[in-house]
Design a protein around this nucleic acid. Sequence first.
RNA 1: GGAGAGGUGGCAGAGUGGUUGAAUGCGCCGGUCUCGAAAACCGGUAACGGGUUUUCCCCGUUCGAGGGUUCGAAUCCCUCCCUCUCCGCCA
Length: 426
Amino acid sequence: MLDPHLLRNELEAIAARLARRGYHLDIESYASLEARRKELQTRTEELQAERNRRSKSIGQAKSAGEDIEPLLAEVGKLGDDLKAASEELEQVRHELERVQLDMPNLPDDAVPDGDDESDNEQVRSFGEPTQLDFEPRDHVEIGELIDGIDFERAAKLSGSRFAVLGGQVARLHRALAQFMLDLHTSEHGYREMYVPYLVLGNAMQGTGQLPKFGDDAFVIDDDPARYLIPTAEVPLTNLVADEIVDAGDLPLKFVAHTPCFRREAGAYGKDTRGMIRQHQFDKVELVQIVRPEDSEERLEELTGHAEKILQALELPYRVMALCAGDMGFSARKTYDLEVWLPGQQAYREISSCSNFGDFQARRMQARWRNPDSGKPELVHSLNGSGLAVGRALVAVLENYQQRDGSVVVPEALRSYMGGAERLVVR
RNA sequence: GGAGAGGUGGCAGAGUGGUUGAAUGCGCCGGUCUCGAAAACCGGUAACGGGUUUUCCCCGUUCGAGGGUUCGAAUCCCUCCCUCUCCGCCA
């Protein structure tokens, strides 16, 4: 959510900044809604003050043993007026809130202009696209050869966009997740967390998945409804919802390995082959809760932590600064890490690292006590995939494939694979 | 699933219809004392919204959530959520 004070005082400037990301803010309707809110609130509070004054004097009269009947008569229809005014105020407030919850975050000034993916800017790169002296296979073919990925049986169980992993591939998948967790906890100072995979609507709203993107999530139709997490960002970030964090505890750095569930509504026909885009995939997620003045620097740091994984696995990648039009709803600034996939002869997203500023914090009411002011103030939140495990598996299979279809195990993973150096063709 | 207890400020914990935003303790901040510190003592210490506008003031809201009764609700009634204890079941 954007700062309501800013919306009140600098509406035009905000509209201009939101336009950069393709969001149209209807200035006039917002301004008139806000004007009605002010009028109704003033009226309601005046009536409340009046009621409080009179009630107090009735109390005093009664304790003094006076007759309160005439005072009661005077109160008359004050209650009805108050009820009418406050109900109307509530309605306008809800309307305002709905509009505010639908507004995306303001892009940072440093974010490049642009409408879509094609306008993203490369910041740096690591390694060169893998050169193979044979026709590269994609991970689907490799998975068949080494007998470790089964899409047909997955479809039998669950429909499209699922995969069953078996044997050495299942182990490689586990190895990747473990390796990532170990690196982030031992080298980068994150606290490992185990979190619920089902969350309430509140949590989804806190990080920005709701109310606008409900169609993207799987819902359990219970009372109350619960959502399958689309990313560990949701439970991890919401850990600080409705809390006032001690200044000394910041930054909070959390890492968790969880499955992620996405309906991929609107992605029909996109990445239908292979396990690039699934309804269920694993991810190791990094989240930081920081002091506002630190968040810019922390984004660079966090992105570096995700990069470390790719570097350790010796996978070629590039870092892209997302343009205003391509960023996610809640993000102020985002870097995507794109790994080279020989099977596609393309760089594909394997991590997305974002600074959300106070946008999520305001939705969550996540604050810290600023020792300078002594007041609770909104924290800043960040997150990044470190990394998407499924896509990392794809990247390893494709980049480490051999002419005969076998796959060399990256050095960094061998200790997690019982010392195995190679996934063999069966 | 059954029975019972409870959810109050950063924390602990009083408070069952009337100037209660809420005793007390801890914590925190300031002061006295001290060469300095501790202890002791004194004082201060909620959040949110709005108005006004700035180092001040005024108003409103908030005692798990939402409704209701009342001139007036932390306090009474209803619904829901959560926590704890015991029993059952269970990985």
